[in-house]
Every structure is written in structure tokens, then in C-alpha cells.
Design a binder for these strands. Sequence first.
RNA 1: GGUCCCGUAGCCAAGUGGUAAGGCAGAGGUCUGCAAAACCUCCAUUCCCCGGUUCAAAUCCGGGCGGGACCUCCA
Length: 505
Amino acid sequence: MPELRLYDSFQRQKVPFEPLEPGKVGMYVCGPTTYATAHIGHAYSAIAFDTIRRSLRFLGYQVKLVRNITDVDDKIIKRANEAGEDPMRLAARFAEDYNRDMARFGVLPPDVEPRVSTHIGEIIALIDRLIAGGKAYVAGGDVNFAVESFPPYGKLSGQTIDELRAGARVEVDDRKRSAADFALWKAAKPGEPSWDSPWGKGRPGWHIECSAMTTAHLGVTFDLHGGGKDLIFPHHENEIAQSQGAYGEGTFSRYWLHNGFLNFAGEKMSKSLGNVFDCEQIARAVGGEALRFFCVSHHYRSPVDFEVESMRDAAGAVTGIRFYSLEAADRRLDYFYSVLARLDAFLSAGGDGGEGPVLRDAEHLLPAVRDALSDDFNTPVALAVMGDAAKLANKLLDEAKGVDKQIRRRTLAHLARDLRQVGGALGILGCVPAEFLHERRARLVQRKGVDAAAVQRYIEDRAAARASKDFARADELRRQLTELGVELLDTPAGTDWRVRDDDDR
RNA sequence: GGUCCCGUAGCCAAGUGGUAAGGCAGAGGUCUGCAAAACCUCCAUUCCCCGGUUCAAAUCCGGGCGGGACCUCCA
């Protein structure tokens, strides 16, 4: 197992990773509050941590991933009341949608998916412990965390309690001792779901759930905690205060990972700008794997610009959306799947060459990817190495001369296997190549408005022309197809075709 | 106002002290009846600007300029 180094947001530097137990990783990721359909930002974060989890597995760690669902929250209650739906039902419904959507992007289900509603007992016990320890106080039916009682408060986000108090924009609530104090428990209001507690009926505050659920499923101290950059303050700051306030210094997460945000042409995603895209839209336009590929083409901590444009008709009505960044990712994905398709066809026709030595260049991929992923999960470098392997495969498939027949075959089998294994670490290339290529072409046919039946007729006419050596006629048909946006690929097995797909901006 | 992050070729993107990965686009070539695909070669004396530290800086420090995030629900 190579030494893993990762960037710890708390220490603000890349550090060697030393798990609590050798070879094992306990990992917690802040999941969604399920009050609406998941959008591309949710997907981006989920993909980032799914990739980290897969990378850790690839590197030989046994990973236990806990990702929560927040199903008790102001936003859920508000939505439910507006819709006249039971809040818990609404939350459960969107949680299901969330998991279905994430599956489109190859995000694997977590090992444990705890919900607030099923951890009320643990939450109450934790709040009790904080009160007993003088870190929290009851105020009416609320319980607040006393920030002043936890001097390290603000360390994760690089602020001091004084700065935070001064900067607090919330109106001073006279039930709070300090402006920076935050609610652990909120007294029930009419029309809200509530649970019995020593402080009366109420419900948990937003941050306490994660402190309670990490302890319940990973223990008082665990290895990794992840989430979007926006969660650093106040969410993660508060989690630290709650957990370390209850269990002491040195407890809670040992390393903090935060993913960068997706920006849209330099702007933040927001509903008012009309650039919130849901997962369905993306899957339909370019396929889920294109987003996955786009994500792993960037380092998870970098902020990423996302190029997208709404297509409008003359009257200005939106007629469609072009995800340029994802289209580019999709093109590269097409390259990798094409190589795999060629490899599969070659190997299934003549076998894998059995046991024995392979060409040396083919043995480079796995160790190089291990190095890349061991360096703070550097997926772009891993992808570059995959590109080298794919190129080598194409070369060997093209040229049989000068290489022992069995060695060549074994080498190609080896490359196919390793490419898929690395793909697994990144969450890509898991589809059957022929199916991926077929579906991709179908999407392009749709997007570019190609008449597939007509293409078929052209191809047949051209085949007839070529058979009678009427090359002028054949070339004319090719030219016409080019005008329709179709490229022909003559192969020994016949003529295949693809939709031309270059950057047409 | 406070805290923090970023600025690498036409575009995307790695690289946190040892002399600029990779991809797209572009140019030339091999292959092909012609193409496409694939493959080969070329494509940043230089990393926003100005100073400084160092034998050595895209990488560290200081100061500009430009962009972004957080401090309020937000992936």
C-alpha cells in the first residue's frame, strides 16, 4: 500500500494519512437535506466523495462510508406545509429520488445511510451530555450550544469567536448568551414534527445530527469527514464544537476533506440565474457518465467553471440546454469506450493468450494510478495515465508485426483488465462498451436531428456503388452524409457510422 | 468590514522548491480507392504583474491587479 497523502482542510496542508486502524477507513460525508430534487451541485459533491471512497478501496483500504440523509429540517417542513404533504413522507420521497439520481453518476450507496428521524435518541443523549458538561444551556424549550465554552471554536474556518460574534448578522436573540451560539434543540412550533425530550417537545437543530450519527456509526473518533466547501462554516465548525465539547480534544474526525464548487461561467449556481440543473436533464442530454468523467477530469478541491448555454428560439423561449463542458467530457469518454470495444471484440474472437509475460509498457498503468491517487486523490493524473494505456492498446490492435502472437494477446487482455479496474476506481467505464456507444449515438442523433433511417439507405447505396467500383458515386454519397452531420467508418467488417460531434459553438 | 481560495498555451487541466503531465483545437505524416477512426511528429525558455528569499521559485515571502467562496439556507 503506497503512502497516502491528503489535503486536510483543518491543517490547511497535504499530510500523510494515518488511519486509526491500519488498512481501514471510517468516513463520514454530509449528505443531502431532502426537500427537493437533487441538482448538479449535489451530484458534484456526491461524485467527489464517491471517487475518494473508490480510490481508497483501489489503494487497498477497507472503507466504511456513512452518508446521512437529513430528513428533519426547516426547509422540509416549509415545503411539506406548502404542498399539504406529511414532512416525513416528503423527505423520504426525495431521499429515494436522490439515491436514484446519484446512481446515474455511478455513485455507490453508502454502507450506512442514517437519518435524523431514526437517531433522535442518540441526539438527545448527546445534548444531555453537553448540558451536563456545561457546554450547552436550556433557554425556554430550546437548547443552545455555548460557543464561549469551547475556546477552539472557529479553528476550522480560520476565525475567532470574537470575529464571529462581531460579524454575526443574525439579530441578537435574547435567549442566546452569545450571538454566535447555535441551536442544538428547537422547541416545537405548531404544525411541525416533534419528539419528546427532557426539554419538552421539539426537534433537533441542524448540526447536532452529524455529531450524533458519526458517533453512532463510526465511534467517537474516526478518520475522514467530507462535505462541500460551503459547509465549513458553520456546519462543520459546529459539529466539531459539539463532538469535542462532548468527548474532549482529539476526538471526532482526524482529517477534513472539502470539495470545491461548480461555477457557471464564473457565477455561482442559483435558482434566480436559472442555472440550476437537475440530474434528469443532464442524464438525458449527455448521459450520467459524462458528468462523472467531467468531475474526475478535475481535482476535487478545485473550483470548476462549468460551461452551459440555454438555447432559445426567436421569441426568446428556452428550447434546450447545451452542456458544453459535459459534451467535451463525453467525447473523451467515447474514446475510452471505443478502445474497450475494440479490445473486447479482439479478445472474444481469439482468446486472452493465457498465462505468461506481457509487454512491459502494459504494466505501467496500475502502479502509476496508485501513485496518482495516493497524492490527494489526483484523478486527472490517473486519467492521463489511462490515456497512455488506451493509446498503447490501440497501437497493439493496429499493428501485429514484431510482437509474439500470444504476448500481444495477453498484453491486450491485461490492458483491458487494468483499464477497467482503474475505471472502477474513478467510477467510469463500467458499462458494456457497445451499449455505451450505441446509446451515445442515439443521444447525438436526437440532439442533431439526424435521420437514422436515411443514413442507412445512403450507406447501402454507397456499398453498392463501391462494389461496382463507382467511386465517384460513393464519394458523392459520403459528401452528402457529411452534410447531414454523419461520418462513415469503413472497416473490414463493413461500414459503421457516427454522428459528427465537434465543438460547434 | 472579517476569513479563505484561485489566476499555468487558443480552450480544458495536473504540477507546493530541482528546471512545465495529459486532453481538445491546430500543423505535418503513416494507414486508406477516397475518407473517418487509430497511430506518429510538432505545438508554453515559461506559469497575471512587480519586488524579495534561495545554488535553484509556477511552487516560499511581501505588494499590486483580476476572479471566486464563506461570514445568512445553500453541494
